[in-house]
């Protein structure tokens, strides 16, 4: 079972209380961007077998979007953090690198 602690309400929520929102930290390319950048923004996702930064919504709860770092194969969770961030906080990176020293965001 996959469990995340919602950083907004502090509840350790089960996967069934959450809605998955795909890859985190996407940079939006809108009007005026190149077709290649726009295609990347719309369609191209990482989908790694390994560490992944993701968006999740505490839909059966406080309703807030948050971000999470987890391993897609082992389901190990390295931490959750506020959605109002452009990159993972140092503490999350530290947790990931403790296990995967080579990991790059």
């Amino acid at each position: 079972m996959l469990k995340f602690t919602c950083p907004y309400c502090g509840i350790e929520a089960s996967e069934t209380e959450l809605a998955a929102g795909g890859e985190a930290h996407l940079k939006r390319y809108g009007p005026g961007s190149s077709e290649q950048d726009f295609e990347g923004y719309l369609f191209l996702r990482k989908n790694p077998k390994g560490v992944h930064l993701e968006r999740w919504r505490h839909v059966m709860g406080c309703g807030k979007w948050f971000l999470a770092a987890r391993h897609t194969a082992t389901l190990e969770v390295f931490g959750t953090y506020s959605a109002q961030t452009h990159e993972p906080p140092a503490e999350i990176i530290e947790n990931i690198r403790a296990k995967f020293p080579e990991w790059q965001a």
Binding site: I11, E12, A13, S14, T16, E17, M60, G61, C62
Partner: peptide, 24 residues
């Protein structure tokens, strides 16, 4: 419900939002 219902996780007066079966 998937919530932790132990007395430690759900003391009296704790307002828990979750789901029962299929619904919020």
């Amino acid at each position: 419900c998937p919530a932790d219902l132990s007395p430690e996780a759900l003391p009296h007066g704790e307002f828990r939002r979750s789901h029962l079966g299929q619904v919020a």
